[in-house]
Design a protein around this nucleic acid. Structure first.
Ligand SMILES: [Mn+2]
Ligand SMILES: [Mn+2]
Length: 565
DNA sequence: GGCTGGTTAG
DNA sequence: TTCACACGTTCAA
DNA sequence: GAACGTGTGTCTCTAACCAGCCAG
């Protein structure tokens, strides 16, 4: 394990990171940039180091106004010189409150509200400098109201020090978008990685394929990502507001954007349903081609006794979009009381259940560490052997370690910046087929036999330990891995591994969750998966999908109904 | 003077 | 940018 | 019983710093 203290950043780390963003944009996307953007980048690149540093410091802070007298950076000796150079390069403006107060047009030029400038000062400064009677007892809000009313009278008394105005946050945003492909990651990711807080696989970056080919595509993404970022809490929105948002969703310009737009369309439509507008939601669900759009539609149509429900149900039975949808449809249609449809259903696989009564000690464990640990201890006490509380972690981990080279293979477009925890297309349907050769190599290892496979797993576990991977929760397994892995490899038959891996391959995104809580290894050999359920809990849809899969492949899984005695 | 939430930094 | 559980409410059968 | 909403704990990167607020 790397200790964070051992990793030191350069004094100008933030500028160096920004430099990487700028360089990549200029190298890969020069032809997609506007004249203004090119000039901006060129102006930045011509600056001396100290000015670049000051600029990036300011750019990465909130707001566009800064007080000179509040800026202190150890690594920038002459802030005023640097600021002067930035002004000459046209990257910032330097202005005093006196100048702003004297010229009405200044606020307009700087696209600024008085409140943005007042935000630079504390309550005490506002009250004392502007001689507001009784400011000490006022809250900040009413004080601001008062001061704004007398704007611009006397405001120069707040400070004689210059103010810096930085307007090009948009450009930084553009660089982020070009580098990461979205706006969720930022310069912070460089730091966290350099500090060793996040550690990423050293995959090979894809240079052949750009994220954006045309300015129009770039603009569409930019606008959408910004819109997405500013989206308010859905819960706070009225039905009308939701409909407006739904109607203003953009047309996607590529499959990536289409996926993101549709995800939001589903969320908005679902929220619209919660507002009691089920009928309106129907038409939005109809535009969606992914789960749970048809599930929601079928529920609504059924509730409204709409005749169309039969046709929809039939389509869903015949060609489900996902295992979760298939499992839902099978159960739901059974309750729809439609003879023709009922004939189309698969025979329902029964899920074996067992009761588990907890003693006094078990009840204590339940309260203190959760129902799963209580069930685990009680079961192992009674039946002997050993057991582990693993939920999704064991199977996704063994899968990820077995196919590690596949997950991080350098396929065109899969990796385009150094801070990805997964390939861009990991959750796409053709992920596996695009890497078929490497899949075959990895399968050869695990099918070579338990010993070869086991040592390969151990080696990858050691080698990759701690590297970011959505299928691997390292800390959760750390304490039990050495004990658990040999048992798992010996006791779980190859055929079961195969069907489990196949199921994961089928839909990595959805099938990474829903696996049972416990795995137990009885003294007489074999293994068993146990899903623990307290009194008020039943199988979730994704858990049903896994249990259906277990039934198809004779994998020993059951539900443990836990009751306290 | 303690508590809290937002911002900044590495 | 999670995942799962517990608990309470509502609704329909 | 089914479906749903909500709160909770787990996970969250962490710590310093600052302003605002309020109880005493
Ligand atoms: Mn669970
Ligand atoms: Mn459970």
């Amino acid at each position: 394990m790397l200790s964070p203290a051992a990793l030191q950043l350069s004094p100008t780390y933030y500028r160096d990171n920004f430099q990487q963003l700028a360089n990549q944009a200029q190298r890969l996307y020069h032809d997609l940039l506007t004249q203004q953007e090119r000039h901006w980048l060129a102006a930045y690149q011509r600056l001396p180091l100290a000015a670049q540093c000051l600029y990036v410091r300011l750019l990465s802070r909130k707001g566009q106004w800064f007080r000179r007298d509040k800026l202190h950076y150890d690594e920038i000796d002459e802030i005023d010189t640097a600021a002067q150079q930035l002004q000459e390069a046209g990257l910032i403006d330097i202005v005093t409150l006196k100048e702003i107060a004297a010229d009405d047009s200044k606020l307009h030029t700087f696209n600024t509200q008085p409140s943005e400038l007042l935000a630079l000062f504390t309550k005490a400064e506002l009250g004392q400098c502007l001689s507001v009677a009784g400011w000490r007892t006022m809250k900040r809000e009413p004080l601001l109201q008062l001061v704004q009313q007398q704007w611009p009278e006397n405001i120069e008394k707040l400070t004689h020090a210059p103010l810096f105005w930085v307007c090009s946050q948009d450009f930084l945003e553009l660089l982020q978008l070009l580098f990461f492909g979205h706006l969720q990651q930022s310069l912070t990711d460089f730091v966290l990685s350099d500090l060793g807080i996040y550690r990423y696989e050293q995959y090979e970056l894809s240079t052949a394929q750009r994220l954006f080919q045309q300015r129009q595509q770039l603009e569409a993404h930019w606008q959408f990502e910004r819109w997405r970022q500013d989206l308010p809490e859905l819960k706070s929105l009225s039905a009308d507001a939701l409909q407006d948002l739904l109607d203003s969703l953009p047309h996607a310009v590529d499959t990536t954007m289409a996926r993101r737009v549709e995800r939001i369309r589903l969320q908005l439509a679902r929220q619209l349903e919660r507002c009691g507008e089920a009928t309106a939601a129907l038409s939005y669900y109809q535009q969606c081609q992914r789960h749970p759009a048809r599930e929601r539609r079928l529920r609504i149509l059924h509730q409204q006794k709409d005749p169309q429900r039969l046709e929809l149900a039939q389509q869903m039975i015949e060609a489900p979009w996902s295992e979760e949808e298939r499992v839902f449809t099978q159960r739901f249609v059974a309750r729809m009381k439609s003879d023709p449809l009922a004939k189309m259903l698969e025979p329902a696989a029964d899920i074996s259940q067992q009761q588990l009564l907890l003693d006094e000690q078990g009840n204590t464990l339940w309260r203190e560490r959760g129902v799963e640990f209580a069930a685990l201890q009680s079961y192992v006490d009674e039946h002997g052997g050993s057991g582990f509380y693993i939920e999704n972690t064991l199977f996704t981990a063994v899968f990820a370690l077995t196919f590690w080279p596949v997950l991080f293979a350098a396929v065109p477009g899969a990796f385009f910046h150094p801070f990805q925890q997964r390939a861009a297309d990991l959750y796409e349907a053709d992920f596996r087929s695009r890497r078929q050769d490497i899949v075959a190599e990895c399968e050869a290892v695990w099918q070579a036999g338990p010993d070869d496979w086991w040592s390969q797993l151990q080696q990858t576990w050691q080698e990759k330990n701690g590297l970011a991977n959505p299928l691997l929760h390292w800390p959760a397994l750390e304490s039990c891995w050495q004990e658990l892995l040999p048992l798992a490899v010996q006791r779980i038959p190859t055929a079961h591994w195969r069907s489990t891996f196949d199921f994961l391959w089928q839909d990595i995104r959805r099938h990474r969750s829903g696996m049972p809580d416990l795995i137990v290894f009885p003294p007489q050999g074999g293994y068993r998966l146990l899903e623990v359920k307290g009194p008020g809990d039943t199988l979730q849809p994704n858990q049903r999908a896994w249990f259906a899969q277990f039934a198809r492949h004779d994998i020993p899984a059951m539900v443990l109904q836990v009751r306290s005695s």
